[in-house]
């Protein structure tokens, strides 16, 4: 049995038939071939699969694709505005907030949720805000800096 779902992903509408047990992350990766969203665990712990569903950060490995029917989804592939990187993407590059890059999409999507809720987070608020995402490469030091970079840049843009 397959169920028809309609989703908007990164501004584009898709209508697809999915098996009810298909996880949203598999739908994105295998059906839509948006492979920037990664899978790092099977216990909803690592955050590598984090995307935005209707504007909030969720772990796409913990949602069924059918549950996303009618939703608007943003993945890492949809974060930049054309050629212009999102300030978080820029921050991660400028501050060396990534090494192997595997956790990076999820980390950036979670950080985007954080900055949407709290545009000027303290270091401790950033660390707390990223507690749902593992990074094994960076020791988080430069990730914190990357988020600070983005917060500053986005703040400047608002005030400018």
């Amino acid at each position: 049995m397959e169920i028809k779902i309609s989703v908007n992903v990164n501004g584009k509408d898709y209508v697809r038939e999915v098996e009810p047990r298909t996880l949203l992350v598999h739908f994105l990766r295998d059906t839509l071939r948006l492979t920037g969203t990664h899978i790092g665990c099977d216990t909803s712990s690592c955050g590598a699969c984090t995307i935005h569903v209707d504007g909030i950060a969720v772990k796409s490995c913990t949602m069924l694709a059918v549950q996303a029917d009618g939703s608007s989804i943003t993945t890492i592939e949809g974060l930049a505005q054309g050629a212009e990187l999102h300030p978080l993407q820029e921050g991660f590059k400028e501050c060396h907030g990534l090494q192997c890059g595997f956790c990076t999409p999820g980390m950036i999507m979670t950080a985007a949720d954080l900055l949407a809720k709290n545009p000027c987070p303290s270091e401790s608020e950033i660390r707390h805000g990223l507690e749902g995402n593992f990074c094994r490469c960076t020791g988080y030091h430069n990730i914190v800096k990357a988020v600070q970079y983005a917060a500053e840049k986005m703040g400047n843009e608002v005030s400018a």
Binding site: L34, T35, G36, I39, I76, A80, Q89, K93, E94, G101
Partner: peptide, 23 residues
Amino acid sequence: KAVKRVEDKRFITGKGKYTDDMI
């Protein structure tokens, strides 16, 4: 010099190519 990484572009935009990304 602290040259920014050239490989970052693909990783921060979701364009990295890991083994499981391939079909």
